[in-house]
Design a protein around this nucleic acid. Structure first.
Lengths: 186, 186
DNA sequence: CGGCAAATCTAGTCATTGACAAGTTGCACA
DNA sequence: TGTGCAACTTGTCAATGACTAGATTTGCCG
């Protein structure tokens, strides 16, 4: 990681973010310690603060990165069903990012970069709902909330260990596909 | 709260739990400090530890209480639709409990009291799904996951502030009723 | 009524952490 | 070359969780 021979780390920002993902994935956001991350990167205890300001700043950066990754993936979806599966896949593949993205108490929700990245994800979700041919009786707004709730709830329950059945990440995504099919069967 | 004239608090356990709910509701679980709760109750900084052991013990007690409250409410539901609405109502009325119940990294998931209370909630949910008349083509297990995901996702998004529309708690519950109606329309 | 054991709470301590301030190093660019 | 700025270090302080030992109170049993 850290090159001891050089004063400068090289890419401390990325190194710290990577370590943060590992810690959060294994032990949750509360176990995150800036000093621990500094130790893992081989730098002094105050070095991370230079890049992120404080703890909330670091977590905000993670949340921004998460929204960018998610929005990119959602943008490649062919329809709403695939979009839902991509949503679940993202949560399974990037649990640390996902957890932080929806925890306004941990981050700075008003951060410009964050609100922008968040809006990007929302825009993609909206497009996905719009792509669905709907009967006249249905309210598109309700449909959007329903689809989002279904995917988000499944992802959240999966990460919290509440769903005992699916074992691997791919299993979970496939399983969600079945759930979505049965729920939104035409 | 604390009666200064007496050495014993009277009901410190409940007093601390109540204060914990206030703090978590306003600032999230991470802002919770045992010493702060002790100050609020007017006792010494180590007094709460006697009742809960440590931080995880306190949060586990909250999670247990939450599952008991939720299971009781779900038990009074007439059908699956009302059960979903009660699920959302619980999250809106008891956000602190709800947040902690699904955060295994914050509590002791193996605690006997917790697993028992958790199982009670699961049992109620199972009964709710079973009460639903289903077509032969449907898989009851998938239906259960779908219903739970929908309600849980809606509740989670609501608490994270991601749903901009519903203002009050009652609004949110009503709104979810519409979402559920449209999703599970027969 | 008396005393004893357990439950409840206090007081003190230690390692860890987040945040801040001030100083040091080294790279880029004029 | 040398100067300005970004990256990093060192030092410090208050707050916290966890632990230990001790004080006070309650309740119980004879």
């Amino acid at each position: 990681m850290a090159n001891r021979s050089t004063y400068h780390h090289g890419d401390l920002r990325r190194s710290v973010l990577k370590a943060a993902v590992e810690v959060i994935t294994q032990q949750g956001p509360d176990a995150l310690s800036l000093r621990d991350l500094a130790r893992r990167a081989g730098v002094s205890h105050a070095a991370p603060a230079h890049h992120f300001g404080d703890r909330a700043g670091l977590l905000t950066a993670l949340a921004v990165e998460g929204h960018q990754l998610l929005a990119t993936s959602l943008g490649e979806a062919a329809g709403l069903r695939e979009m839902g599966m991509r949503y679940v896949r993202f949560a399974a593949d990037h649990p640390a990012h996902f957890q932080v993205m929806f925890r306004p108490d941990l981050i700075r929700p008003d951060d410009p970069e964050f609100t922008l990245a968040q809006a990007l994800t929302a825009e993609r979700l909206r497009k996905g709902v719009a792509s669905l041919p709907q009967p006249d009786t249905a309210d598109a707004r309700l449909t959007g909330i329903a689809a989002w709730s279904l995917a988000h709830g499944f992802a959240t329950l999966l990460l919290s260990g509440s769903l005992s059945d699916p074992i691997g990440a791919q299993d979970a995504v496939d399983y969600f596909g079945h759930v979505a099919d049965q729920t939104f069967r035409t």
